[in-house]
Amino acid sequence: MGDLINRILQNYPYIFALALFGIGTFTVLTHSNLLKKVIGINIMEGSTYLFFIAAGNIRGGVAPIKDMASQGEVIHVNPLPQALMLTGIVVSVSVTALSLALIMRLYKLYGTVDAREIHQIRNEVRASGNSN
């Protein structure tokens, strides 16, 4: 038992990241408000950043910048996950922009940002035989 608690305490960032990932995914899948879905997507992507940055972290390490003035041994954290997450941020910015543009388009076409209502309107249109 003590061993388990110790392991949890040592790996808490990963557990937080996975919990956040779950929250984000749950939000996307269950909320019918489209804007909330986009927020869920952002929470989910945020959790992956946490996951990677935690993987590259060294306790007591400093930012991976070579400081000409400092003397002696300095521990740097792993810069690779940070660089990767910059790419991840770029991707999530473009996904967010694309989804916001789509939401505006949907609002103009259907007059609502609720997925369930949009689905209803869609079904009514399809049932009336007008395949748009």
Partner: peptide, 8 residues
């Protein structure tokens, strides 16, 4: 209308 919903 149809394709934008599917896209989202």
């Amino acid at each position: 209308a149809a394709s934008v919903e599917a896209t989202f």
